[in-house]
């Protein structure tokens, strides 16, 4: 990462923390981490350092809190996120075929980001749309009635979409 990018990450974190301090009634390490995570989509080292500085803790204190929660991520997400549901309902109607196709297309073994950093794959255990199973969430959209072919078409369209 260039020095420029690092400076930007710091600035964006500082901005988010400042806004959070103005809006929130109580400011804690956790609430600061959430604010930074919301703003950046993940917690880079710079965000941990900025939260440490603004809350007067060491980076290790902050890391201890951040690493406790599995919903924080510490590497940058892909430009688009695809979540494949493998809950019981989706599973029964072929979710694993969909998942396999998606993983093959993205060149992934499990969850993670594609090599080009464009798409993140996550598992999901229920999106609350069992009537349309199997389901995929593509960024903010929930798409039902998935088949391997439709999933691949979706990935192709995501690859061409500008952010």
């Amino acid at each position: 990462m260039s020095t420029q990018d690092i400076a930007t990450l710091r600035q964006r974190t500082q901005g988010a923390l400042e806004a959070h301090r103005k809006a929130a009634r109580t400011v804690t390490v956790l609430s600061c981490l959430l604010a930074a995570h919301d703003a950046l989509g993940y917690l880079p080292q710079e965000a941990i350092e900025e939260v440490a500085r603004s809350t007067d803790h060491t980076i290790n204190d902050v890391w201890g809190v951040a690493s406790f929660y599995t919903n924080f991520r510490f590497t940058s997400p892909g430009e688009h996120t695809v979540e494949v549901c493998w809950g019981p309902t989706c599973h029964l109607v072929g979710a694993m075929n969909v998942l396999q196709a998606v993983q093959e297309a993205l060149g992934l073994q499990g969850e993670g980001e594609t090599a080009d950093g464009r798409i993140s794959l996550k598992y999901n255990t229920c999106l609350g749309a069992c009537s349309q199973a199997p389901v995929i969430r593509s960024d903010e959209h929930v798409l039902g009635g998935m088949t391997p072919a439709r999933a691949l078409a979706l990935l192709a369209s995501l690859r061409h979409k500008q952010t």
Binding site: Q45, T58, W63, G64, F68
Partner: peptide, 20 residues
């Protein structure tokens, strides 16, 4: 009063470590 190390993660994978 240094806090140079911390408990990281939780449950089965909990361990002592430093930031990142």
């Amino acid at each position: 009063g240094d806090n140079a190390i911390t408990i990281i993660e939780r449950s089965g994978t909990v361990l002592v470590g430093t930031s990142f």
